[in-house]
Amino acid sequence: MSALEPRTSASNPGPVDNAAAPARRSLRAVAARYLAIYIELWRNSLTREMMFKGNFLLWIVVEMLWFALQLVFINVLYLHTESIGTWTKWQVVLLIGASHFIQQTFQAFFLINCTNLSELVRTGKLDFLLLLPVNTRFVVSLRQIDLGAFVNAASAVAVMVYALHRLEFVPSLAQVAGFAGLCVAGILIHYSLMFLLATISFWTVRAQGIVWGYYNLFNIARMPDEAFRGLFKAVFTFAVPMLLVSNVPTRLLAKGFDSPWPIVLLLGMSAVCFALSELGWRASIRRYTSASS
C-alpha cells in the first residue's frame, strides 16, 4: 500500500511547508493524499471480500431477509389498523426503507471498524495504526469497507421508490437532495455515537457488548415517531436521537413539517454528537498503554 508509506511523495509537502501562499494548495494535497489512501483501503476491502465470494453473497441474503421481515411486520400491523398516529401504511414503508438505507450505509463505511476498535485495543494492534503518518481516527474509522451493505442500501432505495409510487408522490430534485443531506446527518449520528461507545474499550474490555447493545437501538429508528411519548420520546430525541435519524428525512419526503425545528434539531444533534465523539476519542486515546509491549 504505497499510499500508507511515510511522507516521501512529491505531492505531499509535509508540515515543514507552512508558507502562507501554498496553504490552500497543501490543503488540496492533503485531501488528495487521504483520497489516495481511501481508494487503497477500498481496493483492500474488495480483495478481502472476493476471497470468500459465497459468504459475501450469503450475508447479502441474510440482510435482505431481515429487511423483508420488517416489511412483513408492517404489513401485518396494517391488516389491523388504518394508521399509526397519522402515519399511513406506505408512509411507514417509506420510513422503514429510509431507516434501512441509513443503517446499511452506516454499516458499509463504519460498523465493522467501530466493533473492531475494542479488539485493536485488547490485542495492542492499535500500535501499528498509531505509527502510520495519517490521522489515526481516520484510519481506525474507515479501514474496512463492507461492500455488501451497498447492495442492501440499494434494495432499500428500491423499496423507497416503490413506496413513493404507492403514495403517488414524485419528489422534486431539491427534496431528494434535502433527503440525502438529512440521511448524511443521520449516518453521522450513528457513527459518532457508536464510535463514542467503542472508545469505552480504552477503559474496559467489555466494550464490545455495549457496542452491540447500541445496535439494538436501530430497531427504534424505524418506528414512526408519533407512537412515542413522555420520557421515552425525550430520551430518544435529545440524548440518543434515534427518533430523529430516519423520521426527519422521511417526513421531508412524505409528510412535511409543522415547523422547521425537527430539521434544525437533526442537524444540530449530528454536530453535537460528532463533537462529543471527538472529545471522547481524544480523552480515551490518551489512556492507551498498548497491551502487547
Binding site: 389491523h80 389498523t81 399509526i84 467489555r206 457488548g209 439494538n216 418506528m223 407512537a227
Partner: peptide
C-alpha cells in the same frame, strides 16, 4: 445485564407502537 436492559428498549418501543394502533382503532 447489559443485554437484558438494552433488550427492554425495543420492547418498550414495540408496546408504544401497539398502543398507538389501539388508540387509532
Amino acid at each position: 445485564l447489559a443485554r437484558t436492559l438494552f433488550g427492554f428498549i425495543p420492547l418498550i418501543a414495540m408496546l408504544y407502537v401497539w398502543r398507538a394502533i389501539y388508540e387509532s382503532n
